[in-house]
Simulated scan of single mutants.
Amino acid sequence: MLKKLKDIVRKSSIHVCIVNCGGCNGCDVELVALLSPRYDLEQYGIYVHNNPREADVLLVTGAVTEQWRDNLRRIYAKAPEPKIVVAVGNCPQSGDVFAQEGGRVLAPVSDFIPVDAAIPGCPPRPSEILEAVLTVAPGAIAAKGRAQDARKD
């Protein structure tokens, strides 16, 4: 009974996992602002998890460093299908101020894992992050529902 209830709730909500690959944490501050009463992320049925195995959407922030390259691939592999990745801010897209000639920052993140949406800005506004998640996630939710229905048959 409890598993059925969990499946119903999971089918209609979006679960995100924040993956910080390094950087100034400006984007992370904006993501935390989404949890405040002003934006109230949960009113849209979006819940933040620390476990990528429970995530529908991976929100990648910060510039990917050499140390994070393999970790990011492992985290992506742990996320269930369908996997949605949103690159938040300029750092995962270009390395921004951390990208230097011969530096240790590897950009873009799409070189290591597929990216479904990218939100430019340093940092992007919380409303832009929310809009991006609400744009890409419904497709993932629909696909997840079809996969659960197929397993029942």
Rank of each mutant, 00 (worst) to 15 (best):
T61A: 01
C27F: 01
E54D: 08
Q100A: 14
L35W: 05
C24W: 06
Q93M: 11
P120L: 00
C27E: 00
Q67L: 14
V48M: 13
V57D: 01
D153P: 12
Y47W: 12
C17H: 03
S36M: 05
A117N: 02
G121W: 06
V29G: 11
E54H: 14
G62F: 03
A118R: 03
L41Q: 06
V109F: 02
G139S: 15
I46E: 02
C21I: 12
P80W: 05
F112G: 01
K4C: 09
V115K: 06
I141F: 02
C21A: 15
P108C: 04
A140Y: 08
P138G: 09
V29S: 13
L5R: 13
D96E: 15
C122V: 12
D111E: 14
V136I: 11
D40C: 10
L34Y: 03
Y44G: 02
I14A: 08
I119K: 01
T65S: 15
D70N: 12
L34F: 08
Q43A: 14
C27R: 03
G139K: 15
V136L: 09
P92I: 03
I46Q: 02
A142Y: 09
I75F: 02
A118I: 01
V88Y: 04
A99L: 15
I84L: 14
S12A: 13
N71C: 11
I8K: 13
A150P: 02
N71D: 12
G95T: 11
L35R: 07
I18V: 15
P124F: 07
V136W: 08
P92K: 03
F98C: 08
V16Y: 04
N20Q: 12
A132N: 02
R53K: 14
C27P: 05
I113W: 05
A143D: 00
Y47L: 09
P108K: 00
R146Q: 12
P80L: 03
N25K: 10
V48K: 08
L41N: 06
M1S: 15
C24I: 07
P92T: 06
C21W: 04
L31E: 06
Q148L: 13
G102W: 07
I14C: 13
R125S: 13
V57E: 01
G95A: 12
K4N: 13
